[in-house]
Design a protein around this nucleic acid. Structure first.
Length: 323
DNA sequence: AAGATCTGCAACCGCATACCA
DNA sequence: ATGGTATGCGGTTGCAGATCT
C-alpha cells in the first residue's frame, strides 16, 4: 500500500552544492525534464535526496530565474501582495516572474521587513505600530495638556478612523503654531469645547480627545472601508494621500477657518459601520493594504515611505485568485 | 591588522496536503 | 475508506562575506 519511500537519507550528502553536482542535475533535467524527484538523484548520479535536488533546481538552477537586485516595481509588488496574502511566499512568487518564493522570503526578511519596522509599520499587519497611547503622546506634545476638548462633540459614538479628521488634526496642529487665534475661533465655532468653558487658549486642547476623534481605529480592521458618496474604495493610495500627503507631511495652512472642513462633514463623509466595533487588538486582515504614517525623520525614510505607500492595487487583481 | 559583530542568502527541517495503491 | 508516500510550502539555521571597533 502507498508508495515506496522517497529516499534513504543515510549516506546522502547535505550542505552546499558543488559545481559538479549542479552540472549533473542541470544536464539530467535538460535531457529528461524535471519531476519524479524520488528517482532523479539516483538516475543523475547524485548522492542527494530528491527533496534537496528539487530545492536546488527550483531555487537556483532553473533557467528562468531572474537573479540580482529586486527592482523598485518588484519591491512594490511584494509589499502590495504581502499586504493581501501575508506570508504566502509561493503565491507572491507566482506573481513575480523569475523570482522564487525563497528569494522573495529572504528579501522580505532582510530588507523590506526591516525598513517597515524602521518606519514604524508592523510588517505583519501593515498597520502603524503606534498604538493609541503612543500616538496620543506624540500629538500631545504638540497640542498640549488640559482636558477641555469635548470628544463627544467631535464624533459622537462613531469615533473611528477618519482620514479627514486626521488631516484636520494635522492642520490644527500646524495652524496652532502659525495662528493660534484662528484655532480658537475654529474650535469655538465647532463647539469643540465645553459649552461652559469656551476655548480661550489653544494650549488647552486635549490631545487624547483629539486622538480619539482622529485616530481611533488607527490600527483596527479597515476592511470594507469606503467612501459612501463616491463609492470609491479606500485604497492604500488614498490613505496615503490622506495620511501622509507630501513627504514633509504638512497640510496647507488655511488663513481662515472657513477653509477647514467642518467636523460634521468629517463625520458624515465616511462610513465606519463595518469597522467601528472592531477591537484595536483584533488582527488586521491580510487584505488590508493600509499602511500609513504621518511623520518621517530622514529624507531617506521619507523617500522610502513615499515609495512604500504610493501604490495602487492593480485593477485586474482579484482576491479570489489567491484563495 | 585582527577579532567581533552584522548581514544576506542558500539550504535544511518539519508540517500540511495531494496523491496513490 | 484507509494508510502511507511525494510534493510543496513556510520557518529556521548555518555559513561566508562585509562591516565595524
Amino acid at each position: 500500500m502507498g508508495r515506496t519511500p522517497c529516499c534513504d537519507k543515510n549516506g546522502l550528502k547535505k550542505g552546499p552544492w558543488t559545481p559538479e553536482e549542479d552540472l549533473k542535475l542541470t544536464t539530467y533535467i535538460h535531457i529528461h525534464g524535471a519531476g519524479n524527484w524520488r528517482t532523479l538523484p539516483k538516475n543523475a548520479g547524485l548522492q542527494r535526496c530528491g527533496k534537496s535536488c528539487r530545492l536546488r533546481w527550483t531555487n537556483y538552477l532553473r533557467p528562468d530565474i531572474k537573479r540580482g537586485r529586486f527592482s523598485f516595481e518588484e519591491e512594490e509588488t511584494i509589499i502590495q501582495l504581502h499586504s493581501i496574502l501575508g506570508n504566502k511566499w509561493s503565491a507572491i512568487a507566482g506573481r513575480l516572474p523569475g523570482r522564487t518564493d525563497n528569494e522573495i522570503k529572504n528579501y522580505w526578511n532582510t530588507h523590506i521587513r526591516k525598513r517597515l519596522l524602521r518606519n514604524g509599520i508592523d510588517p505583519v499587519t501593515h498597520a502603524p505600530r503606534l498604538d493609541f497611547l503612543e500616538l496620543s503622546s506624540i500629538l500631545g506634545s504638540t497640542l498640549c495638556s488640559q482636558s477641555v476638548l469635548n470628544v463627544s462633540n467631535l464624533l459622537g459614538a462613531q469615533a473611528l478612523l477618519n482620514p479627514q479628521l486626521l488631516i484636520l488634526a494635522n492642520t490644527l496642529m500646524s495652524l496652532k503654531q502659525e495662528n493660534p487665534e484662528l484655532v480658537l475661533q475654529y474650535l469655538n465655532q465647532n463647539q469643540l469645547c465645553n459649552s461652559q468653558a469656551p476655548v480661550q487658549d489653544t494650549s488647552m486642547i486635549n490631545q487624547t480627545g483629539l486622538m480619539q476623534a482622529t485616530g481611533q481605529g488607527f490600527s483596527s480592521n479597515m476592511t470594507n472601508l469606503s467612501y459612501p458618496n463616491s463609492q470609491e474604495n479606500l485604497t492604500s493610495s488614498t490613505l496615503t494621500n490622506a495620511f501622509v500627503g507630501q513627504p514633509n507631511s504638512t497640510v496647507p495652512i488655511p488663513t481662515e477657518t472657513s477653509n477647514l472642513p467642518s467636523l460634521q462633514d468629517c463625520n458624515q463623509n465616511y462610513s465606519f459601520d463595518s469597522v467601528k466595533s472592531t477591537p484595536i487588538s483584533s488582527p488586521t486582515p491580510l487584505h488590508s493594504s493600509s499602511t500609513y504614517m504621518n511623520s518621517c525623520s530622514t529624507n531617506d525614510e521619507i523617500e522610502s515611505f513615499n515609495s512604500l505607500f504610493k501604490f495602487e492595487i492593480p485593477e485586474g487583481l482579484d482576491i479570489n485568485d489567491f484563495m
